[in-house]
Design a protein around this nucleic acid. Structure first.
Length: 499
DNA sequence: ATCGGCTCGCGCAA
DNA sequence: TGCGCGAAGCCGAT
């Protein structure tokens, strides 16, 4: 088989993870969909389709959802299963066998992937640098009796286009301004399933029996489906749905309605100005390429409009409107900065990964008296003395997200009101990963660690607890932002009262 | 309302 | 080697 010569998938995005050769006598190509949970704009699916065509074999897509991972909850399950329902529809009539598998008990899915890989020519999966995925992919590479390739469909810049870790957004932005342009024209296919593949009807018999496909009832499902699973039922589904369709709807609605306000209103919690895309990006229901493409259409932009500026400045490089450039600074610079760190450092979620200056200053103030000290349970239950903080925590608990400005304050106060910065870090990670739909993502870690000084600089004057870490106060936030409605809406919210 | 100082590290010009 | 400058701040002086 020709190695990649005709491939539309950039070489930098494909990693061969073990030494097995592609088996030309295998029965099918297997795509193990674990992060880019979508059927469009997906380099991994492109790669799998490409291999299936070259080998003239059918394609099987396995989309699993495990039961036993940390923070598994009704909220996360509902969102992922919504995505499976969309994918099931998208694969219908394409000749691809799509097998969504919802694991009933921890460990029940053990053997499914290996079983399918036994007859596969090659297994393709998604590269993702955070949560349990790197370990899971690494273990699979060793165990599977087939070649395993991981494909990076995360961002506009391939994660492995750089070896360096960037310590500040400014440095990374300047790098992007020098290096990103060629990547802007190497897009995944909008609809990779619009191609002729050798069709197949079903999985190998023994496998479908032992690990049955999630039924329609599960995919379209009521919450009683979730009730039977051994996951955290205290974290209810979010008041919005998951999946590629809903993600696309949010994207269209953002561009059509809220985009005009982006920049001016985005920071005011009382206005609804943010994109709302981050949960969909996290689960791969929406692709960064798709977002960029839609924005380009909206702006009448093409890659030739990119300017020659390479100063690292936040606007002016793309050649788009101010609102668009500020959005792209989030979508590309900040989002991919997080992936950059996670792909190069496996300690990205440890306190020790903080910059030297921030650890030093936090250390010096380790024994400062705290004005309040709350336990994890008190933080979790939004039981602090500060109603703005409690409101943010309640929004997180109920909606699975926090307004992007208040998220910073939320973290800064956890630092302020915990017995140590290490404890504060644990609490932030725990609450964010438990409740936020975009938790467990490289970007969530960027946000949490920013609170402790990552990607930031020192600020004077030196203060208690914070040292030279940038300080934020609820009082100033109230003055600066319109938060009255926000507090009214969220502060009094009780879990038992529902929505 | 706006401004400077607080303070650190990095790239780049010199 | 020195200079400029940076995700969202804070505070006191004007």
């Amino acid at each position: 088989m020709a190695a990649n010569s005709e491939s539309r998938v950039p070489v930098l995005r494909v990693r061969k993870l073990n030494g097995h050769p592609v088996k030309v006598e295998g029965k099918y190509v297997l795509y193990w969909m674990i992060a880019a949970r979508r059927t469009r704009w997906n380099f991994a699916l492109d790669r799998a389709v490409e291999l299936a065509r070259e080998l003239d074999r059918p394609l099987i897509v396995l989309e699993p959802l495990r039961a036993g991972y940390r923070w598994a909850s009704d909220r996360i399950h509902r969102f992922v299963i919504d995505g499976m329902a969309d994918n099931a529809k998208a694969f219908q009539g394409t000749g691809v066998v799509y097998h969504p598998y919802v694991e009933p008990d921890p460990g029940a899915g053990e053997g499914l992937l290996r079983g399918l890989a036994g007859e596969a020519c090659v297994v393709v999966t998604d590269d993702f640098p955070a949560f349990f995925l790197p370990r899971m992919i690494g273990a699979a590479a060793e165990k599977l009796p087939a070649r395993l390739e991981a494909v990076d469909s995360n961002g506009i810049l391939p994660m492995r286009a750089t070896e360096q870790v960037f310590a500040r957004a400014f440095d990374f932005r300047r790098f992007l301004q020098r290096e990103l342009k060629p990547h802007l024209v190497r897009l995944p296919r909008r609809d990779p399933l619009r191609t002729k593949l050798r069709p197949r009807q079903r999985l190998p018999d023994g496998i479908a029996k032992r690990w049955p496909r999630a039924t329609e009832a599960v995919l379209e499902g009521g919450e009683n489906v979730l009730a039977d699973l051994p996951i955290d039922h205290q974290v209810p589904p979010a008041p919005y749905g998951g999946g590629a369709r809903e993600g696309r709807r949010v994207l269209r609605e953002f561009l059509k309605v809220r985009f005009k306000r982006y920049g001016e209103d985005r920071n005011h919690p009382d206005s609804d100005g943010a994109s709302g895309l981050s949960p969909y990006l996290h689960f791969g229901h929406v692709s960064a390429h798709e977002v960029l493409q839609s924005l380009a259409e909206h702006e009448g932009w093409s890659p030739e409009n990119v300017s020659g500026l390479k100063s690292g400045k936040r606007s002016g490089w793309w050649g788009m409107s101010a609102a668009a450039e500020s959005f792209l600074d989030q979508l590309v610079t900040w989002r991919e900065l997080g992936f950059n760190l996670c792909v190069h450092r496996d300690d990205f979620d440890l306190y020790e990964s903080l910059p030297e200056w921030s650890r030093a200053t936090l250390e010096e103030h380790a024994s400062d008296p705290r004005p309040h000290v709350y336990t994890l349970e008190q933080f979790d239950g939004a039981e602090t003395h500060d109603d703005l903080w409690n409101a943010a925590q309640n929004q997180l608990r109920m909606e699975g997200r926090i307004h992007n400005y208040l998220r910073m304050l939320w973290g800064k106060k956890i630092l302020h009101w915990s017995e140590s910065p290490q404890t504060a870090l644990e609490i932030m990670i725990e609450l964010n990963n438990k409740y936020a739909l975009d938790g467990r993502d490289p970007n969530s870690y960027s946000g949490i660690f920013w609170v402790l000084g990552r990607y930031d600089r020192a600020w004077g004057p030196e203060r208690e607890v914070f040292g030279k870490i940038r300080y934020m106060s609820s009082a100033n936030t109230r003055r600066k932002l319109h938060v009255n409605q926000y507090i009214e809406r969220w502060d009094g919210w009780q879990p038992s009262l529902g929505f």
